[in-house]
Design a binder for these strands. Structure first.
Lengths: 134, 134
DNA sequence: CTGCGTGCAAATGGTTTGCATCCAC
DNA sequence: GTGGATGCAAACCATTTGCACGCAG
């Protein structure tokens, strides 16, 4: 299997820390937020390194890169696809706390696409932003 | 109702053309691609205007802005939410040609979010890219 | 030792914006 | 005539990249 976490890949202190910190939080931070988190532990780390590692980790399937509606990409320490809630005002993203099955495309109906994964995102206004608006 | 197309809004030649051209194609073009399309008809239009109008039109609910996994945003002339297929290699986006119901969140389970809309995107490799890869 | 990973800073690329002018109403 | 819309170009901001050095294996 390819999806194992630590295989032949080199595990630098920065890569390890980034992964650890990302898994620690339940929010779905942007690269910038991850940078800030890791910087508290490892002040000399660079933003570029954070980007490179988030990229690397999501390609390995260890974390999830959330495409989503916002400008910035967000990252999820849980690599198993699951539905998210996104606030269209502040951009916050959280997990849906309700068991919901993902839609599936029958094999003959993929229009020739392969390696399909399903992203589900509910977009709306979060309670905090709804309160502020009025 | 607020979602009516032409209400008190001013309808400039450029806005009209952008909307018409976007509705004409079945692809889901990026702002840049819309710019190219419209430029064939209206050579002096500026990219900024295209962005401003796509923004305006999607806020009005006349077109759909696709958040999606890629870098650039894409736009859909059909404002009714429906599942999409995205190629993770070339970024192309198309409609799923198969009736699929969108997941729904029960009223009590929205975690306080309001005005919810559901985005479903299947991400995979399109036939063209799959062919090239090997 | 060797080369992958890093820090730094500059480059990129999509998108936004300020401003004077234009035109739909 | 008047304010919203446009064209143009500069500004922004997230992300990427080149390069020389550092450290994990």
């Amino acid at each position: 299997m390819e999806t194992n976490e630590k295989r032949g890949v080199r595990l630098s202190r920065q890569r390890e820390t980034i992964l650890t910190e990302l898994c620690k939080v339940k929010t779905h931070p942007t690269a910038d937020e991850v940078y800030e988190m890791v910087r508290k532990i490892m002040p000399r780390i660079s933003l570029g390194t954070v980007y490179r590692n988030l990229d690397f980790l999501s390609n390995q399937g260890v974390v999830l890169r959330l495409g989503g509606a916002g400008t910035q990409k967000r990252f999820d320490g849980n690599p198993v696809p699951h539905p998210h809630l996104r606030c269209s005002v502040c951009g916050r993203v959280e997990d849906v706390e309700y068991p919901l099955s993902l839609p599936e495309l029958p094999d003959g109906e993929t229009m020739g696409y392969t390696d399909l994964r399903c992203d589900v995102e509910f977009v709306g206004v979060c309670p905090q932003c709804a309160r502020k608006k009025m």
